[in-house]
Write a protein that binds this DNA or RNA. Structure first.
Lengths: 247, 247
DNA sequence: ATCTGATGGATACAACGTACACATCGGCGC
DNA sequence: GCGCCGATGTGTACGTTGTATCCATCAGAT
């Protein structure tokens, strides 16, 4: 792996590794053309929303922008940065200024909004990596502001934030995995899904390995209410934070 | 999109869509050759563990097995099923029979083991989809068995399970995202990572958008203790379940 | 010994990310 | 007003990927 600094023949004033967000914040040196990071992100997000993340191809994106396949590479260094840009774009739409009374309300509303965002853009679950983009950082910022003045030290504050967002992320990931499975096979409702999965399921159940799970399958009545499931768990998490940390 | 049933000229006794796990359970029609689903999964998992999930290509796998590129397609219908197989393989190594006293201990140990498994095979976080494989189903089975006889209805039992595994999955996903970032760039410790990220970070901090986050950066002392972070959050979650549901 | 279905090999193709060299446009100094 | 030069978009090409398809081969029942 060669040093990522100098590509080949370089001019002497080599730019010292400006990050994606740093470059974006520069005063837009020449906004004279049609292509801009914002337009790129917008187009890519629309493709991902309507056709899935796998449909976001550099060529497909170029077609949507009415531009040559390699054009976007002037603005993003590669597909990874494109996806960073997309994720930051949808985080930018997150409503973070909702009025709320107290840390618990703030965190609850934040969690509900994060879930809504992930459900509206299911690909974010697979795409989100280390959250170091401006609009992603705004989320812990909002949470920390709400959690200040409760006597928690910095580490515990972060633990609270991580606990809530961890729950949200994992929980929504499971929800979306099921949703993707349904979409890929064209199953619409919960009943239709169960009908399609029935052979697979009864094969597994007939092995006799899963008696407790089988009882759940018979007795559960809210299997098709993901919002209830999410919010029940969320209230457990919030209650746990309040009880365990005494705030 | 044509019907996935008949490829071309088919013999009249078309197999009625047996699932991956159903096929695996059949009495191994002819175990006369070197290739088996177990060996395939084993080899693929080793590649993913040592070189990352992206290194698992059908050709790379075939080379590792000493076999032609298309050989594995006799056992898995495509790469998706290969990954299902890999995930089920590592779930099979999960120790689920640890003795535990009460539901809380059981769930706590389960969570810790799930985290350990994900850390040992970081690619599972990106790979895990709808958990309908035999060894994945064994996890809720174990949890449901421990949660029985506490007066919880089936839906609430599932909610408890989903809450814990949701927290684990999301929490570990964040931990591994950071770990991947470090591995991809060759940063070893937390200090080295922060040093490498410093320009990016100070650019973002200098925008003045993140005062609360900046305070956290200065005051936190356990930023490099992911186990403490995980277990602190886990105890919050478990306490919350106990308190909120009265068990 | 022969037949047959299961197994692995060989070849091929479309689509992907992206490196590289080239054409073109518009604002700046003269 | 004119020419220059860096910034922007284009064209072409290469290596790699998943996988469809056809072919050779082997084990075991007849």
């Amino acid at each position: 792996m060669p040093a990522p600094q100098a590509p080949t023949g370089d001019d002497d004033r080599t730019k010292p590794q400006a990050s994606l967000w740093e470059r974006l914040a520069r005063p837009a040196p020449a906004p004279r053309t049609t292509l801009t990071p914002h337009r790129i992100a917008e187009a890519a997000v629309e493709i991902a929303d309507t056709e899935g993340l796998d449909a976001v191809t550099m060529r497909r994106l170029a077609t949507a922008l009415g531009v040559a396949p390699m054009a976007a590479y002037r603005y993003v260094s590669g597909k990874d940065e494109l996806i960073e840009l997309m994720v930051d774009f949808v985080y930018g739409r997150l409503p973070l200024d909702a009025p709320a009374a107290g840390w618990r309300d703030t965190m609850r509303i934040l969690a509900v909004h994060l879930r809504a965002m992930n459900l509206a853009h299911p690909w974010t679950v697979r795409a989100a990596a280390a959250s170091l983009s401006p609009n992603q950082l705004a989320v812990p910022e909002r949470a920390f502001a709400a959690l200040a003045d409760h006597g928690l030290d910095a580490d515990t504050t972060m633990a609270v934030f991580r606990t809530v967002t961890g729950y949200v992320h994992g929980s929504v990931a499971a929800e979306i995995a099921l949703q993707d499975l349904q979409r890929d096979h064209g199953w619409s409702g919960g009943d239709e899904t169960r009908a399609a999965l029935a052979p697979r399921m009864s094969f597994l159940m007939n092995t006799g390995r899963y008696p407790a799970y089988q009882r759940y399958l018979h007795e559960a009545t809210r299997k098709d209410d993901p919002t209830w499931q999410f919010e029940t768990g969320l209230d457990c998490v919030l209650t746990g934070i309040a009880t365990h940390l005494g705030i």
